[in-house]
């Protein structure tokens, strides 16, 4: 009896921390705050920044990286990485380009084919990791990065393919009212991924596998299946990003997406995902991708010289992650102090 009383007293000592203070919100939405600050600064710096048209520009310009990043996020959640997304994007869209422009295949069918190819290449990444037991996804996806790029050059004979039908262009270049179709697609995809990660068993397993592989195995989670699914979805999202890119520029080209892997990783990390796996959110990743797009847009608007732009982007990546490190430290401190 006395035991119970003692524990209840102890329990009360912790009650205060459960209340959500303003501070905890700030720490929770650190990257969003960063995005807002960046936007406010740019609004003052350039009168062209805060206009409907420019905002829609940013929405379009961030769409491709956002779509790829949400796939990348899954791999990072499992403490992995996918270096092949740019090449997978190129190969899947180039095959689609050949199919549509050269063979005249139905565009809807071709888009589905594009996504299927992306998913298949991702599936292969997953299989190489789990079944061939390659030591780290760095290896399997680095291999795929080169293979897919090479194949993209082969299928297109190294030339860009242009002249896509309206249906394909619609995804990357169409509008519904003032809003770009590509951005609507981003929102739909992110809502779906948010539901998947937070509200399905398989989604929770992704966090579990990244947080503690051994514990996940011993909790009856099919780790291999989870990893293969993660890489498949990552490849699939790369090709969805490719669809938008193809529609946007009305061309598929074998050298598309050369640095997209790094941009996607940067978006995830800026958005608060951890390379150690097990932590990171879909919405954080969207904010990360937005920060990168806003930054590039802002630097263009301000007419910052080309060399300084490169420096600025690098500095912001480091600063954003550093702010997140500080935030985590503060959070950790706040938590240890309650124990």
């Amino acid at each position: 009896m006395s035991n119970l009383e003692l524990k209840n007293v102890k329990a009360e000592r912790f009650q205060t921390t459960d209340k959500k203070s303003v501070k905890s919100y700030i720490s929770k939405f650190g990257s969003l705050l960063g995005l807002l600050l960046l936007c406010i600064a740019l609004t003052f710096a350039s009168s062209h920044f805060l206009t409907l048209k420019n905002i829609m520009n940013i929405a379009r310009q961030s769409a491709i990286n956002s779509l790829i990043s949400v796939g990348m996020l899954l791999t990072i959640l499992t403490a992995g990485i996918d270096l092949s997304v740019g090449s997978v994007l190129a190969l899947s869209t180039c095959i689609m380009g050949v199919a549509v422009v050269k063979w005249g295949i139905n565009p809807i069918l071709a888009m589905l084919m594009c996504i299927a190819i992306g998913a298949f290449l991702g599936f292969l990444n997953g299989v190489m990791l789990t079944k061939l037991k390659l030591p780290h996804p760095f290896i399997s996806t680095l291999g795929m990065k080169n293979i897919a790029r090479g194949l993209a050059l082969i299928v297109t004979a190294a030339s860009p393919i242009s002249g896509f039908p309206k249906a394909i262009q619609y995804i990357g270049a169409g509008f519904i009212g003032p809003v770009p179709v590509s951005f609507i697609l981003v929102i739909i995809v992110f809502v779906l991924f948010s539901i998947f990660l937070n509200r399905t068993a398989q989604g929770r397993y992704i966090y579990a596998v990244g947080g503690n592989l051994e514990a996940s195995k011993l909790s009856g989670i099919n780790v291999e299946k989870t990893l293969i699914l993660v890489y498949t979805l990552c490849g699939l999202m790369a090709s969805v990003g490719g669809l938008v890119l193809t529609g946007r520029v009305n061309a598929a080209f074998p050298l598309a997406g050369l640095d997209y892997d790094l941009d996607a990783i940067a978006a995830c990390i800026i958005g608060g995902a951890s390379f150690m796996g097990g932590s990171g959110t879909v919405w954080g990743t969207l904010i990360g991708a937005m920060i990168m797009a806003v930054l590039r847009n802002g630097l263009n608007l301000l007419g910052v010289s080309a060399d300084l732009q490169t420096v600025a982007i690098g500095a912001v990546i480091i600063a954003a992650v550093y702010v997140d490190v500080l935030r985590r430290q503060a959070e950790k401190k706040a938590k240890t102090q309650t124990v």
Binding site: S46, H48, F49, T51, K53, N54, N57, R60, Q61, R296, N297, N300, L301, L302, G303
Partner: peptide
């Protein structure tokens, strides 16, 4: 992207 942004300014 760059042209879109330049057209703004």
């Amino acid at each position: 992207s760059v042209m879109e942004n330049l057209l703004q300014t």
